[in-house]
Simulated assay, not measured.
Amino acid sequence: MSRDGDEHRPVSRVRVRVPSKINLFLTVRGVRPDGYHELVTVLQTVSLYDTVTAHVEGPSAQHPAGRRSMQLDFTQDGTSGVPDDEANLAVRAARVIMAETGFGSATNGCGPTTRLHLDKHIPVAAGMAGGSADAAAALVALDELWGAGLGRARLRELAAELGADVPFCVSGGTALATGTGTATAQVLTRGSYHWVVGISDTPLSTPDVYRAYDEVATPSEAEPDAVLQALRNGDAEALGDALHNDLQVAAEHLRPELTERRQAILDAGALGALVSGSGPTVVGLAENAQDAVRLQRAVADVFDRVEVGLSPAGGPDVWRD
């Protein structure tokens, strides 16, 4: 088995482990003419992962001409709330890259089959880009498996067709995103950051949160400068003070218990805490790894599940068989 960075060679199976994300900063500048919200956000990957495995089987599996009749099969580990049809972003990502490469363009149905399997651990509809991460993993896995040679830059362009966080998830690390969230620029970051991640089993719909934001909030003038400076300096205490999310007021409007849960993390001694993205996940910044474990224990009864994560967690990690 070979890891990402090895010299390219034909492969029969590709496994991509992709991290989740948190929003260290998010402001909503208003509603665009196309109906989407204008955002400024600082994104960072954190070490909660999903894994997408892809392999090809059947006739002409290794022949590009035969792949014009490629079929797609998607399975997942049965996690509640994850669709296994075209509503799944990973499936949609596979369709996008099939259209880009011409694989699956014939309709005789007698070609090889690409099988995608999702092993899901990132919580669903939780403000941690789980669906976007899966889409990014599918793009990376199929580019590698099929030897398409599209590269990460082109994959990010295709990712922008799928959703706001998908281009970031293709790259990972830390980024400043603007527009609808698809335009990203990598951000200089020093040090690592330790988080307690409070997870709720009941998901929260992103469209519902944006609708609530339009009802109960106003566009923000907050700027990401303090967050960016803290990241450049590797200053966890300053980062904790600078954490900001405009959507938090909307998420807490829909789920008032999130206010108490966020406060519980702060009362336990976190450097800062906020709702991640559209929620309902609440993250708290710890001083170090030992403090993160202490915080995890302190708020274990407040959430349905509490994880400890490290950021930045890089981008998609590729294994080839």
Rank of each mutant, 00 (worst) to 15 (best):
A87G: 15
R154M: 06
D6I: 12
I22Q: 05
Y210N: 03
S12F: 06
A137S: 11
R156T: 06
L295E: 00
G66Y: 04
L162A: 02
E287Q: 15
P112E: 01
R115E: 10
G35N: 05
E144I: 02
A292S: 11
M70C: 09
E7N: 14
P33E: 10
D235M: 13
L158V: 07
Q229D: 13
T75A: 15
V56C: 12
R115Y: 04
I22M: 11
L310C: 13
A87E: 07
R262E: 01
E307K: 11
V196A: 12
V227C: 09
V11W: 08
F25N: 08
E237A: 15
D291A: 15
H117I: 10
Y36T: 07
K120V: 06
A106D: 12
S171M: 14
E237M: 13
A99H: 07
A164H: 06
A183E: 11
V196Y: 07
A251H: 01
V302T: 09
R67F: 08
G102A: 10
G277W: 04
G234Y: 03
R211H: 02
P167L: 00
D241F: 15
P256A: 08
R294W: 04
V196R: 05
L231Q: 00
C110A: 15
A141D: 02
V318I: 04
V282W: 03
R232V: 01
E7W: 08
R3L: 13
V11S: 11
R211T: 06
A236V: 03
L150I: 03
G163I: 09
V31W: 02
S80Q: 15
D143M: 07
E223M: 09
V299M: 06
V308H: 04
A268M: 09
H8Y: 15
E252Y: 03
V91S: 08
L271V: 04
D235V: 12
P167F: 04
L231K: 03
V318Q: 01
R297S: 14
W146D: 05
T79M: 15
L43V: 04
R67W: 05
L258M: 08
A212Q: 08
L295A: 10
E260L: 12
T113L: 01
M128P: 06
D235N: 14
D119N: 10
G315W: 08
S69D: 05
A236W: 09
A65L: 14
S276T: 10
V91P: 13
R3V: 11
N233Q: 15
F25A: 04
V96A: 13
V170P: 10
T107G: 14
N233E: 15
D241S: 14
D85S: 10
L266G: 08
Q76Y: 13
A264R: 09
L26R: 07
T259L: 15
A141T: 00
V28E: 01
G234V: 06
P59Q: 07
G181D: 02
Q44E: 01
P219V: 04
R320M: 13
A137T: 03
E215S: 13
V46E: 00
D77R: 13
R255Y: 01
E86W: 12
R9Q: 11
T180W: 00
F103L: 09
G269D: 01
T182R: 13
S80W: 11
S60P: 12
V166Y: 04
L243A: 05
G131I: 05
H253F: 11
G130M: 03
